[in-house]
């Protein structure tokens, strides 16, 4: 019975071909068409985008890409730095927290879990624009204003409740019997966590980490307010700059969006490699 890890999937348990095909076609159309519009727009010059943004037939040009690639490169590097550090911080802090919220070791702790979950949900309801001014003061007091560190701290705190809530179901998928076995063997929390839970959480960590990376990459309210003035802008702020109350450079916006989203795709594909099916299979027999 060694069909685990088979690349093409088992014969059973897969959707019927027809349904699968139809769904994939619909998805491809609904997600590819807007992407094509973006690509088309990116190949228009400033004038073409201004006078005929909806035109499908036009003389494409690389001028827009040439204009934006200089600023795009610097922004991408900065965003990579911010997102990588924030994602690492969220993972390091969030994974143990998610684990802790799945272990009902006593009724008292169970009550703690309920309270903490409620607080995490509340924290997500605070509108982000309204947190800027208080956080600005907090970061200033800690002398973290204007630095990447300060921004990372703010972003980590922003995404942490969401990440913990999202990691929890993955942590819950660890079978209870493993905990019982480990307890009987005399293992403490640390051993259980490191030797059993973490390996089984690889799916969850990879998924949530790539989601967090993408979210932090796109975050621009804190990025605009908390970074050093005059320094390089991250991608999110650079994109927002293309629209002012007076004018909009659609072609540049779309070209920048394309160029600066490619690294995200790379990160996602890298994380996807780590997802394997049927991870718990070998552990319980």
């Amino acid at each position: 019975m060694s069909r685990r890890g088979s690349r093409t999937g088992a014969q059973v348990g897969t959707p019927p071909r027809v349904l699968s095909g139809i769904v994939k076609v619909i998805l491809t159309v609904t997600y590819l068409v807007p992407l094509l519009w973006i690509v088309i727009e990116a190949f228009k010059s400033d004038n073409q985008s201004l006078t005929a943004p909806d035109a499908l037939i036009f003389a494409p040009t690389l001028a827009t890409f040439r204009t934006v690639i200089g600023t795009a490169t610097g922004s991408v590097l900065l965003s990579l730095l911010i997102a990588a550090i924030a994602t690492a911080a969220v993972t390091v802090v969030g994974v143990p927290a998610a684990y802790a919220l799945t272990r009902r070791t006593s009724p008292g702790w169970g009550r703690v879990i309920a309270v903490v979950l409620t607080i995490l949900l509340i924290l997500q309801m605070v509108p982000q624009p309204m947190t800027v001014i208080p956080l600005y003061g907090v970061l200033a007091r800690w002398h973290l204003l204007g630095s990447v560190t300060g921004l990372v701290v703010a972003d980590t705190a922003l995404v942490l409740p969401f990440s913990i809530l999202l990691l929890r179901p993955f942590a819950l998928a660890v079978p209870k019997s493993l905990y019982e076995a480990a307890a009987l063997d005399g293992a403490g929390n640390a051993q259980i966590f490191l030797r059993i839970v973490i390996p089984l959480l690889r799916n969850g960590i990879a998924t949530v980490a790539s989601i967090v990376f993408i979210i932090v990459w796109g975050e621009f309210i804190y990025a605009t307010n908390f970074l050093t003035e005059g320094s390089q802008l991250p991608v999110s702020a650079l994109l927002a700059e293309q629209i002012s109350i007076y004018s909009a450079n659609w072609n540049r916006l779309m070209a920048l969006a394309l160029l600066t989203s490619l690294p995200l795709l790379a990160v996602f594909l890298f994380a996807q490699r780590r997802l394997t099916a049927g991870l718990t299979l070998g552990a319980v027999r």
Binding site: V92, V93, G94, P96, A97, Y99, A100, L101, R103, T105, S106, G108, W109, V112, V116, I119, L123, V153, T156, A157, L160, P161, I164, Y179, A183, G186, A187, G188, N189, I192, F193
Partner: peptide, 17 residues
Amino acid sequence: RRVTAPWAYLLAAVVLL
């Protein structure tokens, strides 16, 4: 062994938040 409540694992998150 009866495992103790894993409060230490929650600590960093709680402090940061």
